[in-house]
Amino acid sequence: MNKTIMLKWLQEGSISIPTALLTHYKTLKLTEQELVLLLHINSFLEKGNEFPTPTELASYMTMDARQCHEMLSQLIKRGFISIMDGNNENGIRFEQYSLEPLWNKLIDLYLFINKQEKAKEAEKAETDLYSCFEIEFGRPLSPFEIETLGMWMDDDQHNPTIIKAALREAVISGKINFRYIDRILFEWKKSGIQTIQQAKNHGKKFRQNQQSTIGKGAESSVDSTVKSVPFYNWLDQ
């Protein structure tokens, strides 16, 4: 007997809903009762009942058929449910609920939240970038320098991480000025450099070439006893 009951329970199946609906239903301005009603409609749809009556829905909720009907009307008016017309294989016209408006609202909300998060990340990266420059320069940036940083990001579309890499390159070369950094960014963009690793590899390769050139020059000079420390002189490019 118990096994039969358990088998019946398993055969009733389960419903699958996006976790985002449970997480953001409050943001969508849905009440707990409205959420449960939508879940019941989804359950009926999955079981093949595409147009459950208010009485059928109310039998699973703590409200009567009249309250259920009013809530359904409000959800339709607010664009969470739609009623679609169709014809079956016998040509008989029928109506059915659709939760597509609900899923569209949820997708729009998810995309909006994702956009906001990216905007916050970009704002944080920009703030960190200004701080990095002020630390390396040892002073607050001038209005012109702040404007230049903004132009690198907005007009030239340089990623803040790439700008930081160019700043580090300028520090290594002992030429911490905006003209020098601008030249580095120009050369990197021309060379198609878009990642930190590409920037590191490019700088390393150039220094190796510089080291080789300086080494040959030192060998050809009898009076040369000390080799200069090579640096990436972007302004000479």
Rank of each mutant, 00 (worst) to 15 (best):
L35D: 10
F44L: 03
F80C: 08
R207G: 02
T31C: 04
D128L: 13
A170C: 10
E145R: 09
S59W: 02
K47H: 14
F112Y: 11
R93P: 02
T225N: 12
P160G: 11
T213C: 06
D156Q: 15
N2H: 09
T225E: 13
Q208M: 12
H24G: 02
G174I: 06
D154A: 09
L39I: 15
V36D: 02
Q194V: 13
E95F: 04
K118C: 01
H202E: 11
I135L: 12
Q211H: 04
K105S: 11
I83D: 01
A218R: 14
T23Q: 12
F51P: 01
G203H: 10
I162D: 01
P52K: 01
V222Y: 14
P18H: 07
D128T: 07
I5P: 00
S73P: 00
K164D: 12
T127F: 03
F137D: 07
N209L: 10
Q208H: 07
F178I: 15
E136C: 09
L10S: 05
F144V: 12
R207K: 12
L185T: 07
S59D: 13
K190V: 07
L109G: 05
Q67G: 12
T55F: 00
T62G: 00
T27W: 03
A122R: 14
N49W: 03
D154E: 13
K204Y: 10
